[in-house]
Simulated scan of single mutants.
Amino acid sequence: MDMFEKEYRKWMDVHVAKRKGERRRKLAEGSNHAEKEMLRHIWWAAFGNFEFLHPEYEITDFFQGQRFLDFVYIRGPIRIVFEIDGYGPHLRDISRRQFCDERVRQMHLTNDNWIVIRIGFDDIKERPRLWIGLLQQMMGRLFGNPEQQLTQVDYLEREVIRFAIRENRAIKLRDLEKLFSFRYRAARTVIDRLVAKQWLIPASGGKERVHSWEVNVNNKQLPL
């Protein structure tokens, strides 16, 4: 049994023991495949623990009915909802009214100060690195120590540095756009952060505008 499976079972057992009735039965059945895959390939890879995370969290929705959210993260005043969306159920197996009601429910969660994150199941299989980085960035902004933000390197930044070292050349924005399926602005943001932390420096040859960057070999603490 690997470490993820061991900690996952301990985490589920703790939450099952706290619940009763339908809430206990639903949780005892275990997470579905998509939810567990998200935990394994994204959440565990990003954070290595399940602290503050609650599975199958019950709320009263805007119709005054009971509803279960896939996962919620509650830490102090911050409340985050994680929903895993499969392509078929959300675009093929629901009516137009149900589709609209889901958007209304999401807006009610937002009005109740929940942060709502929806992850497509295909991304769990095909682009887990993207979501690992996105979640780490979000958690860093919400809970990170501001005094450490200029030196800490998140998952995406570390992957960019490793990529630049493997390629043994200056990297460009289009490299990040291809590697992480980024758009221009997101790629530029990551590069700017790495330059600010002195992990990357402008490549030689740039004049007024810099179009490529290389690893700062003079930095003796490269985060590999």
Results as ranks from 00 to 15, higher is better:
156 L>Y: 02
152 Q>V: 10
36 K>W: 12
124 I>N: 05
139 M>P: 01
194 L>R: 00
44 W>S: 13
139 M>G: 01
134 L>F: 03
137 Q>E: 11
221 Q>W: 01
17 A>H: 10
47 F>M: 05
67 R>Y: 14
3 M>N: 14
196 A>H: 05
110 T>F: 07
87 Y>W: 15
206 G>V: 03
89 P>K: 06
211 H>Y: 15
180 F>S: 06
210 V>I: 14
28 A>S: 15
214 E>P: 00
92 R>M: 04
186 A>P: 01
115 I>S: 01
206 G>Q: 10
188 R>L: 11
64 Q>G: 08
79 R>W: 06
77 P>L: 03
192 D>T: 11
134 L>W: 04
183 R>P: 01
220 K>H: 09
200 L>F: 12
16 V>F: 03
76 G>K: 01
75 R>E: 01
106 Q>K: 08
116 V>G: 04
76 G>I: 00
84 I>K: 08
43 W>Y: 08
190 V>R: 06
216 N>A: 00
202 P>H: 03
117 I>M: 13
111 N>Y: 14
183 R>M: 03
29 E>K: 14
159 E>L: 11
74 I>C: 06
114 W>V: 00
83 E>D: 15
13 D>Q: 07
13 D>E: 14
35 E>F: 10
83 E>A: 14
85 D>V: 12
125 K>Y: 15
46 A>C: 07
177 E>I: 03
125 K>H: 14
44 W>L: 04
76 G>W: 09
23 R>V: 07
133 G>N: 05
4 F>C: 06
10 K>E: 12
59 I>S: 04
183 R>K: 12
204 S>H: 04
50 F>L: 03
66 Q>F: 14
23 R>I: 02
211 H>T: 15
65 G>W: 04
6 K>G: 02
122 D>W: 10
109 L>T: 05
75 R>H: 14
101 D>E: 13
56 E>H: 14
140 G>Q: 09
132 I>P: 01
108 H>C: 07
187 A>G: 15
106 Q>D: 14
24 R>D: 01
189 T>M: 06
95 S>L: 02
180 F>Y: 07
135 L>P: 01
109 L>W: 09
177 E>R: 09
186 A>Y: 08
99 F>C: 03
126 E>S: 07
94 I>E: 05
105 R>I: 02
44 W>M: 12
40 R>D: 13
213 W>D: 03
78 I>C: 10
22 E>V: 11
6 K>L: 14
178 K>V: 06
114 W>L: 02
150 L>S: 10
163 F>M: 15
187 A>H: 05
185 R>I: 02
47 F>N: 06
93 D>S: 11
113 N>L: 10
210 V>K: 05
30 G>K: 10
127 R>Q: 11
50 F>Y: 11
162 R>P: 02
17 A>W: 09
105 R>L: 03
197 K>F: 00
130 L>W: 11
217 V>Q: 14
55 P>I: 09
208 E>A: 09
52 F>Q: 04
176 L>H: 08
126 E>Y: 12
203 A>N: 08
123 D>K: 14
171 I>S: 08
113 N>F: 14
66 Q>D: 13
109 L>I: 05
197 K>R: 06
203 A>L: 02
54 H>G: 00
